[in-house]
Design a protein around this nucleic acid. Sequence first.
DNA 1: CTGAAAGCGCTTACAG
DNA 2: CTGAAAGCGCTTACAG
Lengths: 342, 342
Amino acid sequence: MATIRDVAAQAGVNPSTVSRVFSGKAKISEQTQQRVMSAAEALGFQPNAIARSLSVRRTNTIAVVVPHIYDGYFDDSFFPQIMRGLLQAAYPLDYRVLVGGSDSHADVITQTFQILRSHQADGIVVASSRLDVDTVGALVAQGVPFVLIGKPPAHYADVTWVDADNEVCTANVVTHLIHQGHRRIAFVGGDPAVAVTGERFRGYQRAMAGAGLSYCERWVDYGYFAEAGGYKAVERMLPLGADAPTAYYAANDLMAVGILRALRDHQIAVPQQVSVIGTNDSAEATHVVPALTTLRVPYADMAATAATLLIDMILADEPLPPVQEVLPCTLIERHSSGPVAA
Amino acid sequence: MATIRDVAAQAGVNPSTVSRVFSGKAKISEQTQQRVMSAAEALGFQPNAIARSLSVRRTNTIAVVVPHIYDGYFDDSFFPQIMRGLLQAAYPLDYRVLVGGSDSHADVITQTFQILRSHQADGIVVASSRLDVDTVGALVAQGVPFVLIGKPPAHYADVTWVDADNEVCTANVVTHLIHQGHRRIAFVGGDPAVAVTGERFRGYQRAMAGAGLSYCERWVDYGYFAEAGGYKAVERMLPLGADAPTAYYAANDLMAVGILRALRDHQIAVPQQVSVIGTNDSAEATHVVPALTTLRVPYADMAATAATLLIDMILADEPLPPVQEVLPCTLIERHSSGPVAA
DNA sequence: CTGAAAGCGCTTACAG
DNA sequence: CTGAAAGCGCTTACAG
């Protein structure tokens, strides 16, 4: 493969001149440019990005690490939407996305640091904030550009993140159900170790309290984002009889689908007897029967915003003030929810 | 950030010794190793992967390029399953996956070459073979490691690829329908410009011919992998009246879902009056009503195989003989297909 | 506008 | 087992 020296020799100029022609920044005479370009063409020359990266200390790459060990991670719309947003924002800025795998939740942080400290990427977007590992603290200590998708723990005020308005949106959904006459509303959260789960639960509590309703602890369950988790939640709550919920809010659509299935298996009509609302507006939401009412979370937009902010940070010479962006969710009303039975 | 020289100075050794300790290949005395490691720890040293890559001419990265411009690309299970397979195979071999975006189908090839020729990755897996661009020819000419997911055009015999047995599997599905008494069977392909579409169509033709059935051209349509495409196919075929198909085979589940919806809108009972079979076993296949019979294509396994083969090629010093792997598909029978109406 | 030189941070034959 | 040197292929201040 031809190098900059080969081109220089062929064009009869100094290698630095070839470099200048390709970087496009310095003024080079029209004539020299022509000579260099035709020599480059003749030799099939393309600058070596690795050598360039070493020299300028910039890779034009942002990273993300993905717990590939969890099959279910690839069933949800979360992952593809995140990738879509990252790519759509990175592409026009001439950035690529480096994806690292990870073996476990704890390994996510190991891999993140390996990529960052070995300079394989200029910065990272961290897409899964868990409460059991202090990713943020470690990242801050490292002094490398990063942006979070999802809020950090409260004591990290000066960190850049983008999130959906989880607490408020969840509260709105619950309030919506309350307006439809529901009083006994179930909260089926995802993984309690994930920060967003807590935010949603607070939204739920706030809405209930705001309406002067008290909730019973048996209306709260965690389904770990799996369809089976939703199914089990229903089976645990149905025995409450007259105290069983008339509406379920689930933190993703997969769990909502499990809830629908459990209800169907128990001959409970949706939405006539019980309402169900999911989250994410995944592909299956429109395909289940009845079509799922769901809280649409703009993951692709969030990822695109995160990538844009990250690249801004990378390109800036000085540290940038932290920015926090909160994107709104939208309730998509379909046919799985409605007024409480008379 | 500390470099190898800092560590060397601190440990009182030559930089090359530090390098040897970290590469782990050369024999270094226990004592020296200790000194180097503790110096490294004290300084928070981690080798710069970019510098290493430049020196050894290897990045430990494989690439894939994704047409991020098509929103629908991220709705199908194809993309996440491919990523899952790549990551699961790459991770244990200590490889990362570089994802490049692309603006259009033609741009896929531009981006592919940019990544490869600028040495940002050691090789590439090409996941979308189109007939309108000679990706393979260009790749062969380049002499860079690559493996295809999907067969190349017939005249490239000595190229490494992995594919599902599309023609045979489609033929089997159609034969299965024939055994159930169907005689008028529709073929709803994806994008005619994609190689797999032709393979599936040949399987369809073969099965029909093998059973002594002739097919009518009006039973053949292309839905471009979109739900609306499936819907329209039904609307085009229903006016055939007594000649309308009693069974539909669709090249992905999204189109099959569109077919189901069109049939429902026309009050045609599935599977009592008409059968439909999709492809891919996507998430929605289990959630539609009736649950979709579908041809499961092992995309994650194909991608994992491709990644493994690619890394083998990269790691081998000499060019490896090309290998072709064909993975089997599985018909998942659910409730959208059955015997033809009496 | 162009050249010569030093440097980015590693690796690895070559000596000893 | 360890050191000194050259090299991977660029970029960029410094001169002129």
